[in-house]
Amino acid sequence: MSDTASGPHGEAATGPPEPVREAPMSRRLIASEVACVLALSLGAAAVSAVISFVGTVTAPGGLTEQTASLVDPRAGADRPWLDLTWQVYSVVFALAPVALVLYLLRRGAQSGATIGFDVRRPGVDLAGGALLAATIGAGGLVVYLVSWQLGLSTTVAPSSLNDHWWELPVLLLQAVKNGVLEEVIVVGYLMLRMSQLGWSPVRAAVVSSLLRATYHLYQGAGMFVGNLVMGLVFCWFYQRCGRVMPLVVAHTLIDVVAFVGSVYLIGRVGWLPG
């Protein structure tokens, strides 16, 4: 058998094949891509939160008698290294959708810089993120306390980890993971794709915020409203500055305060549920 390739009419082919040129992404392809990304990440979390919420409101007792724990132990207290291994595993692989999003942007001749997910402006990002964290964090705490008193939210236990030396480092990693995962996908990536679909900024912000609120629904109706407002503020900020990094910083700081505060304050101050 000859190793020489033949052309369509039997003549020998010469030279390398022509490169395949990718067609521009159609609206249908963009919508399909978004659906796949969300199904592998926070879209699935939203469905899970709705199911959890239904189970909570139909359980005996009110919402305040139910507890929503955000970071749980993965092994018994007598097996700390196994628990630590599972905690690191959960953080690393939870960020896989972010890697997928960055890959998809790169394939489309874009990058993380397109949505402002880079370190080109550390000072501005840190300052903006700290300001957002202070504003949203304080408001979120008030919403939680009021909604809990009204019976509209579960008792949120940010951490139920066992007392090990690695507890705080793991909580910090969880906070960073939450900030990166949620803001890159729900704001940066989703807002970009919705603009490519021709959606108005207001419509895109509402959809993004509703998604954020829905995957927090397991914490109760009060936190649904609180996260809806947070999402609208974050989308407004992103549309003004075009950078997702301040949102990552803000979200991370909010979760750091919540996680670390739960370790040192819950059970020690009377006004904090838990």
Rank of each mutant, 00 (worst) to 15 (best):
A5T: 13
A5G: 07
S6E: 14
H9E: 15
P16C: 14
A23H: 11
M25R: 12
R27S: 08
L29M: 15
E33R: 14
V37Q: 01
L38D: 03
A39G: 14
A49G: 05
I51Y: 14
F53T: 12
T58K: 11
T58R: 15
L63A: 07
T64M: 04
E65N: 08
E65T: 15
Q66F: 03
T67E: 11
A68F: 14
W81S: 14
T85G: 15
V88I: 13
L95R: 14
V101E: 06
L104K: 07
A109E: 06
Q110K: 15
G112P: 02
D118E: 06
V119P: 00
R120K: 10
V124G: 04
D125C: 00
G128Y: 00
G129H: 03
L132P: 00
G137T: 06
G140W: 07
V142T: 08
V142N: 02
S147D: 05
L150S: 02
L152G: 05
T155S: 12
A157N: 09
A157T: 09
S159K: 10
E167L: 12
E167H: 06
P169N: 06
P169S: 12
V170E: 01
V170Q: 05
L173I: 03
A175K: 07
V176K: 00
K177R: 15
N178W: 08
N178K: 13
Y189R: 02
L190V: 08
R193D: 05
M194V: 08
Q196G: 02
S209G: 04
Y215V: 01
G220L: 12
G222P: 07
M223W: 15
F224V: 04
G226K: 04
L228Q: 02
M230T: 07
G231L: 11
W236S: 12
W236I: 01
Q239S: 05
C241R: 08
G242I: 10
M245V: 04
L247F: 00
V248C: 00
A250Y: 02
L253T: 02
L253G: 01
D255T: 10
V257N: 08
A258C: 06
F259L: 05
F259K: 06
V260W: 12
S262M: 09
S262D: 14
L265I: 11
I266A: 11
G267R: 14
W271Q: 03
